[in-house]
Amino acid sequence: MNLMNFVYAFLLLLAAFVFQTTLTGINRKVVARLQRRRGPRFYQQFIDIFKALSKGSTTHGWVFDFGVVMALGGIMATAIFIPFGPLKAVPAMDNIFIIAYVLAVGMLGMAMSASGSGNPWASIGVSRALTNMLAYDIPFMMVVFGLIFAFDTSSLSGLAAIQREGGFLGWHVIRFPLGGIVAMISLQGMLGKKPFDSFIAPAEIASGPMVEYGGRHLGMLFLLHEFSTFIEVSLIVHLFFGGGATVAAFLVKYALIYTFLNIVSNVLPRFKIDQAVTFFYKVPLALAVVQTFLIIVVGMGVA
């Protein structure tokens, strides 16, 4: 690791931010069209973020600030590990388990900061978010586990490259359709989109973890949200949709998947948190176990 790596990393972060934020704006428009509205400008998300950052804020003590910084820092670090199409800021660090766990630093920072505000709604929201995580992560990890066993690598770009060898039909979503379905459902959970968004339920628990944030804290949380969306969607693109031989290919796949999930999200109601857990353990987990069993024991789709 030298200085160039960091400069490179910074540029990639910037690119990821611009791309994902624009995409979020476009998606707001898409959703508006679904609802027969005109919707905001496509760059509305930028305005929102910069506005939030420009405002004054209140703090409830050092852990409230520190948690936000730790959260955004952790998430940005994770985003640096994600290959941006074929581009990688840090070589040989796109190990899926590293990403999964570094991601948790951000989550922990966010949770810590939220609870540090002293608002019980924040704690309730965090408790729901963590429960949600326990639900969606396990089916996802199981599928990933199968992939790693099958191809003997846990590198994201490595797994993506293996898929591209077989062209479109080599994509894991085609070869391991069950796994693909599980991953998509889990992604929905990861992104906190409906029906798995009960942890922010604005009308019920006043947006949960975010209840006390305003000004720069809130702005940073929006940034965090963009980056974590980038990480999570990229994971799926790399693991199941062949990654990207070029940046453009990567971004197109990315945009399509994200928009698709967003549309799905907007026609669904919301699960209660225990319903979400039950659902994940009944359907996706079962599918994931079947898929992994097929990979490990039968070898289906591997060769």
């Binding site: 919707g39 400008r41 305003g214």
Partner: peptide, 15 residues
């Protein structure tokens, strides 16, 4: 469609 002006409801006064 008030969102076209960039307006929207928020959950708490902090935000």
């Amino acid at each position: 469609d008030m969102e076209q002006l960039g307006m929207g409801p928020m959950a708490t006064p902090r935000q």
